[in-house]
Amino acid sequence: MIKVEVVCQKNNNISQIKVWDHAESGEYGFDLVCAGVSSIMIGALNALNELDYPFNYEISPRPLILIEWSGSDEKQEMMKIIYYQLKTIEEQYGNYIKIIEKEEFQ
């Protein structure tokens, strides 16, 4: 199962999205849930980079993709778009992806 951890600040802004593990919804190379989640995350990294948004990231073969927001509130929409895309997959394929929402304590 793919796990997604979304860390929110008290003002409901998203400070971090971390995605790891495999969906195992199909054979290797034919797992549509993994393909969808991977496309969302890699596309988001490409968009954040192209738009020159302030963010940090980590990618590892574990598999793990981590996006940390370091920008201002007015450009926060991109993190929310990523969240809503992942949430849409969870609504349809809840047996293969789980989103965990956490509140950031400061």
Score class of each variant (00 low, 15 high):
V4R: 07
V4W: 02
C8T: 15
C8D: 07
Q9R: 15
K10D: 13
K10F: 03
N12W: 03
N13M: 07
I14S: 02
S15N: 05
S15Y: 00
S15I: 07
Q16A: 02
I17M: 01
K18N: 14
V19C: 01
W20Q: 13
W20Y: 13
H22R: 14
H22L: 03
A23F: 02
E24L: 12
S25N: 13
G26I: 09
G26M: 07
E27F: 01
Y28D: 09
G29R: 05
D31R: 06
D31Y: 00
L32E: 10
L32M: 14
C34L: 01
G36V: 01
V37M: 02
V37R: 04
S38V: 13
I40H: 15
I40L: 13
I40A: 15
M41H: 10
G43C: 07
G43S: 14
A44K: 08
L45D: 01
A47G: 06
A47W: 00
A47P: 01
L48I: 13
E50C: 01
E50L: 05
D52C: 03
D52S: 13
D52K: 14
Y53N: 07
P54W: 00
F55P: 09
F55I: 05
F55T: 06
N56A: 08
I59T: 12
I59F: 07
S60R: 05
S60K: 11
R62W: 00
R62A: 04
P63A: 04
P63R: 06
P63L: 01
L64I: 12
L64Y: 06
I65L: 02
E68L: 05
W69G: 07
W69P: 07
W69V: 10
S70I: 14
S70F: 00
S70Y: 02
G71W: 06
G71L: 03
S72E: 10
D73K: 15
E74W: 09
E74S: 15
E74C: 14
Q76D: 11
M78H: 01
M78F: 06
M79K: 02
M79Y: 04
M79D: 04
K80V: 11
I81V: 15
I81D: 03
I82K: 02
Y84P: 03
Y84C: 04
Q85Y: 07
Q85K: 09
Q85P: 05
L86Y: 06
L86T: 06
L86W: 05
K87V: 02
K87M: 03
I89H: 12
E90I: 01
E91Y: 00
E91C: 02
Q92Y: 08
N95G: 04
Y96T: 10
Y96K: 12
I97V: 11
K98A: 09
K98Y: 03
I99S: 03
I99E: 00
I99C: 05
I100A: 06
K102F: 03
F105A: 11
F105W: 04
Q106N: 12
